[in-house]
Amino acid sequence: MASDKVIQVSDGDFDARALKSDVPFLLDFWAPWCGPCKAIGPVIDELADEFAGKLKIGKMNVDDNPATPGKYGIRAIPTLILFKGGEVVDQVTGAVGKKQLAAMIEKAL
């Protein structure tokens, strides 16, 4: 089930939503034609539910939003970047499992 806690982020509202977030923000850069991106979809949903209140999770479609991926030098998807207080604190590329993502989040909280 898609979680309603996952926030759709665009180039336009990236600053307001991710950089100025009051809690750490995990942003998933994806595209509809990318198989591994689809594969991690359910994990993103589960994490959004499990860490609700402590962390926000968003998704950005790189097809529709080229500016932000360009700014962060993203050249492979899925890439997940963890922001805290407007800074990049961690980042991972490729379909990584829930355990690894949960550990990355725990470390930053």
């Binding site: 595209a31 034609w33 990318c34 198989g35 591994p36 991106c37 097809d63 050249r75 492979a76 490729g94």
Partner: peptide, 9 residues
């Protein structure tokens, strides 16, 4: 590791 995912970049 995935041409089909990342060629577009």
């Amino acid at each position: 590791y995935c041409v089909d995912c990342d060629a577009n970049f």
